Amino acid sequence: MDGMKELVEYGVIGLLIGLNLWAAAVAIERWLYYRRIDVHAYPSLDACEIALTKRLVVIGTVAANAPYIGLLGTVLGIMLTFHTMGSSGAMAVATIMIGLSLALKATAAGLVVAIPCVVMNNMLRRRVSELLAQYKARHGA
C-alpha cells in the first residue's frame, strides 16, 4: 500500500497530464490544418471528410475517459486512506484528510482534463461541419 500514494500522485495524475498534452497537440494541429485547407481540392466528399476528421477521435476519447481515470485515482486514494486507518488502528484526522485530499486531487485532475477536451472536440467538429457544408455547396453534393 505504500506505493499506492505514488501510483495515484504520479501514475494517475501523470497519465491525465500526458493525455491532456496529447489531446491539446492534436487540437492545435487540427485547427491549423483547418485554417489552411482547401476543401474544394478533394475529389470526393468522403475523401474530404476523412482528411478533416483525422485524429479527432483522440480528443473525444480523452474527453470521455479522463473522468474515469480520475475516478480510478479517487478510488485508489480512498482505499489508501482506509488501509492507513485500519493498519494504524487510530482515527487520526490528519491521516484521513491527507488520503481524501489525494483522492479529490485525482477527481479534479480528471475533470480539468475532460472539460477542455469536450470543448475542443465540439469546436473542431463544428468546424468540420462548416467545411463539409462548403464542399457540398460548391460541388452540389
Rank of each mutant, 00 (worst) to 15 (best):
Tyr34Glu: 02
Arg55Asp: 14
Leu124Trp: 01
Ile17Leu: 14
Pro67Ile: 08
Tyr68Pro: 07
Ala66Leu: 01
Thr81Phe: 02
Leu124Ser: 03
Val57Gln: 05
Ile28Lys: 03
Arg55Glu: 14
Ala47His: 13
Ala94His: 06
Leu100Met: 14
Ala64Phe: 14
Asp2Tyr: 03
Gly86Val: 13
Gly140Arg: 02
Val118Cys: 01
Phe82Glu: 04
Pro67Ser: 00
Thr84Gly: 04
Ala106Val: 00
Thr53Phe: 07
Leu71Cys: 11
Leu45Gly: 06
Ala141Thr: 10
Tyr135Ala: 05
Val128Asp: 04
Gly86Pro: 10
Lys105Ser: 02
Gly99Thr: 04
Val26Lys: 05
Gly11Ser: 11
Val57Ser: 11
Ala24Ile: 15
Cys48Ala: 14
Leu111Val: 11
Lys5Cys: 09
Tyr42Gly: 00
Tyr33Thr: 10
Gly73Pro: 06
Ala25Ser: 15
Glu29Met: 05
Ile115Val: 09
Leu132Gln: 08
Val118Gly: 00
Asn122Pro: 01
Arg125Cys: 00
Ala41Glu: 09
Glu130Ala: 08
Tyr42His: 01
Cys117Gln: 13
Tyr135Glu: 11
Thr95Asp: 14
Asp46Lys: 08
Tyr135His: 11
His40Gln: 04
Arg126Thr: 12
Val57Leu: 12
Tyr135Cys: 00
Ser87Arg: 02
Arg36Phe: 01
Leu100Gln: 00
Thr84Met: 10
Ala141Asn: 09
Ser101Trp: 13
Gly77Met: 02
Leu100Asp: 13
Pro43Ile: 04
Asn122Arg: 09
Arg138Phe: 07
Lys136Ser: 01
Val118Tyr: 10
Gly11Val: 06
Arg138Met: 02
Met4Arg: 13
Ile115His: 02
Ala23Asn: 09
Leu56Met: 10
Arg35Ser: 05
Leu72Ile: 13
Leu56Ala: 10
Val58Ser: 12
Gly11Asp: 08
Thr95Leu: 12
Pro116Met: 06
Val112Met: 11
Arg36Val: 09
Gly77Trp: 00
Ala64Ser: 15
Ile96Val: 11
His139Arg: 14
Asn20Arg: 03
Gly70Asp: 03
Ala133Ile: 02
Lys136Gln: 14
Ser87Trp: 07
